[in-house]
Amino acid sequence: MIMATEERVLVKPPSEVAKQRPGEIEDASWLPVKVKVRNLNFHYGGHQALFDNSIDIPASRVTAIIGPSGCGKSTHIRVYNRIFEIYRSHKAKGTVEIDGENVLSPATDILKLRKKVGMIFQRPTPFPMSIFNNVAYGVKLHYRASRGEIADRVEDALKRGALWDEVKDKLGEPATALSGGQQQRLCIARAIAVEPELILMDEPCSAIDPVATSKIEDLIETLRDNYTVVLVTHNMQQAARVSDFTAFFYKGRIVEFGATKKIFTNPDSGQTEDYITGRFG
């Protein structure tokens, strides 16, 4: 288990480290840290949902967050882009540093933060507009661009979202006409189009069928090359398949965090083992 409270020393520059397949990584200590969370506490009104969360999310890798319902998985990642703030009674305390900057500081430019930190939700959320405009929406928000530049960016994002071939002939059609799985890939393309560095996925496959799920898992696999991905999932097989690192949450606390291989084969904590083996949760 990685001791989350200690500062890490970068032993090898990341360029020297060839990309490994998920499951092959056993040690995170030489990876640069993208998100450094320290003593994060979260309250929904009078109810405390997170207790002293501390974790280092490695850059350019997929980190899965697993745990039983209501354990604070989603709550935790919803702090990273400060989306929780739109609800008045939701309060976060502690520090969440992305690339060394504390996002919870009042000085944070929230629009810039959210450009840098994309988010995918449980249910696909296509905007009520055309496929093209869905992807162009974020681009137009953050860039002054000509029509041609926007069209190029949209095409590129849809290709990275593994959706281009299916929609290239009907970009003008309403996005709501797509299937659930396509809608979710559209949302991923829409997030990619604004060039985020970190992509948060909040159970992105829980509302779609197995075939669409495997397409999204393949897509997450390709995203590893360019983005840091944090994936909240109920599905332990999914965590084992696509993630490099796994954090196990229980009752608002991070019980264990480490290489996915280790968590799934030889966890340190008895609670983690009980959850992984299906004894509770």
């Binding site: 882009n81 989306i83 739109i86 629009l111 810039k112 933060l113 959210r114 450009k115 930190v117 994309g118 988010m119 939700f121 449980q122 249910r123 959320t125 905007f127 929406y137 974020g138 928000l141 953050h142 949302c187 829409r190 997030a191 604004v194």
Partner: peptide, 15 residues
Amino acid sequence: PDELRESGLALGAPR
């Protein structure tokens, strides 16, 4: 649905 609001805001759009 709130998720639609959240995904707009999560893209970095002002309210």
